[in-house]
Design a protein around this nucleic acid. Structure first.
Lengths: 173, 173
DNA sequence: GTAGATGGTTTGTGAAGCACCAACCATTTA
DNA sequence: TAAATGGTTGGTGCTTCACAAACCATCTAC
């Protein structure tokens, strides 16, 4: 073997992300079940809290989920009163989706409950590191939100911000 | 509404991890297909590179995957010559699984190819931040590896280290 | 040495998550 | 008025799993 110029080993986060997400999801499931939620509900709620009132189409884009399946997901959440569909004033075809107050509270409760799962999966990291991780994930998530590339292609301009507003839901465990 | 004592909003990485992993997986799929790999193969290969020669049982534990399904996964990888099953000398029931040289090379190629997907999903982060993210994920992954809790329960002592050895596969894109 | 536990394998079965298609209504835009 | 668009419903099918059952090889304990 030609002993290859060993310099810059690739550092891809993808597989690690995948791996940890899976571990976390498995742990989370048992914690979430008593609350009547599934991991994907949490994902949707989290996205909705960050994204404010967006259309289902945009939500589908952010979630990278087929539109028809978003309908079902939202049906669940709306039936539980965690989310609200309102017709948009500007375009009455659109549904503006938003967290209800109950939804925000419930999301917060769920996050508290998830502490156990997180301790388990992220146990090797100290508090400060976990916070760093959270910040990075959140930034990445916000940045990738509507997929800028696509937004640009559409001639839209939803790229610049969407990043750093305060999380303001009730924060008591 | 009672305006709740807004202090410590929960910062749970779980849902974000889930969200980003999904986005990444979707992006990765198209990049990986030409290489005849699936995202979950990459996860397994990555884990195997880090974990060295471990038994299938331990691999199943790390992957949190049912043993019977690990068999199928390894069948794929072995058929492609990326992985090798050897009978353990100490316990001939056990199969010691290890990356072949070809497997390491292929993993590296795949990681190079994944740059595109990563740029796409992690676009909001700069190079330094991505490296930080990678480091954190890797540490978390290594720490959670065999699930320390379980290892302790078994009376084993595989908790302390497993963290920071150099990645040493051929690193040329 | 024999019994029972353990690691691995095969062959199912079934559930969940999801993409995709088709048809449909309400609304907006051309 | 004719597309195009956002949302909804219902259906099909694929993939990824968990779980069960039956089996072989091997190890451990009695």
């Amino acid at each position: 073997m030609p002993a290859a110029p060993v310099d810059q080993p690739e550092h891809r986060s993808g597989p690690l992300l995948d791996h940890l997400a899976r571990r976390m999801r498995i742990r989370s499931e048992s914690v979430l079940t008593p609350l009547g939620l599934r991991p994907r509900h949490l994902v949707a709620l989290t996205v909705l809290r960050d994204a404010g009132g967006i259309s289902q189409r945009d939500l589908a884009g952010t979630l990278q989920l087929d539109g028809t399946n978003v309908v079902g997901l939202l049906n669940d959440l709306e039936a539980a009163g965690l989310v609200e569909r309102r017709r948009s004033a500007e375009d009455r075809r659109r549904h503006v989706v938003e967290l209800t107050e109950h939804g925000a509270t419930r999301l917060n409760e769920a996050e508290c409950a998830l502490a156990v799962a997180e301790d388990d999966v992220l146990g090797a990291l100290e508090a400060g590191e976990r916070e760093t991780l959270y910040t990075l994930l959140r930034r990445a998530s916000a940045g990738a939100a509507g997929s800028c590339a696509q937004a640009v292609a559409d001639g839209a301009d939803a790229c610049g911000e969407a990043a750093t507003d305060e999380v303001d839901s009730a924060g008591n465990c």
